[in-house]
Write a protein that binds this DNA or RNA. Structure first.
Lengths: 171, 171
DNA sequence: GTTTATCTACCTATCGATAGGTTGATACGG
DNA sequence: CCGTATCAACCTATCGATAGGTAGATAAAC
């Protein structure tokens, strides 16, 4: 059996990616794995701390997945990001964690806002470095924006095909 | 003085665009205009009803603004959407209402989810009709996705310049 | 015997929502 | 002109539910 903290993070991630930061509560997570809400505080002192931890784990997994894909050319790099986003949408049927949190960033604690910013900075830095050339950063922003927006549209339509249409022109 | 219902909607819209659906409460809105939370129910029976009303008003204003811009060519049409998004970001410094709601759509009532879907459908329909050609719809999805994603990125960075970079390639 | 994980049992704050009453303006009937 | 009925707008007071969080006890593991 997976460790409790890990299972709590799994559930919290799913809830956030489905309904945002307000979409989960300690009580709900606890009930889903059969413990009491007070016990969740043993693993994560506050809700914001927990969300930040979930964000870090998500980012680590995301960049590991990107790194596992071919990245010889600039097109490879863009394709790597695109297929990583697509895999997240297909596998879980959920939004990108940072797409959700970024949209409601104005209401989140600085602790979480920092994680959001650092994720996107890392995306743009990595991607523009792999794209290269004078307009690399601009192109990187465009790619990330299209992927995040495409994912949001696919969720609104509840149709993953919409994502494919939105990002078709990227590579 | 503006009517109370109008002022409530103004405030609700600002809160949603800043922090999502959970980012406003009847109490907070009421306090901001100096009435009691119970009185808000006189104007909007439920929170979901109010959010749906705010969404409809936002959509109406949005499409009116788009329609006011030049739309001779396909490029005009894309530029019209881009500048309408850009104006919303510059004027208010806030997200697109539907970008926020779409991201957390999984946790919203069907009443609101319907408004979200109908907004994006209307965007894509209008835009692809004005673009024309065989790949018009695919292109429309791409444009909307990039605009929404670009707006989200600009908010995460707290830098409107990021929006311009993300959408630079659109026209 | 200390640490780890969980419990019971709370607390305070806030949420959306409801019931029932007050006020003041408007409209109507005699 | 006066009385009456109606209505919108807001009030006070309260509801039950839920939120995040805390304190202290318990039981097992190392």
């Amino acid at each position: 059996m997976k460790e409790t903290a890990e299972r709590l993070m799994d559930l919290a991630e799913a809830h956030i990616r489905n309904a945002g930061y307000a979409g989960f509560s300690f009580r709900a997570l606890a009930a889903e794995i059969g413990i009491k809400s007070a016990s969740v505080h043993h693993h994560f002192p506050t809700k914001a701390t927990m969300a930040a931890a979930v964000a870090r784990r998500y980012a680590d997994r995301f960049f590991a997945a990107v790194a596992r894909r071919p990245n010889e050319t600039a097109d490879d790099a863009i394709a790597a990001y695109r297929s990583t986003f697509k895999a997240a949408l297909d596998r879980d049927g959920l939004m990108c964690l940072f797409g959700v949190l970024g949209a409601e960033a104005g209401g989140l604690s600085p602790e979480i806002a920092d994680e959001i910013l650092s994720f996107f900075r890392r995306c743009v830095e990595d991607l523009s470095q792999r794209i290269g050339g004078p307009d690399a950063e601009t192109r990187a922003f465009q790619v990330i924006a299209t992927l995040e927006g495409g994912m949001m549209l696919a969720r609104a339509y509840q149709d993953t095909e919409v994502f494919d249409q939105a990002v078709a022109a990227l590579v």
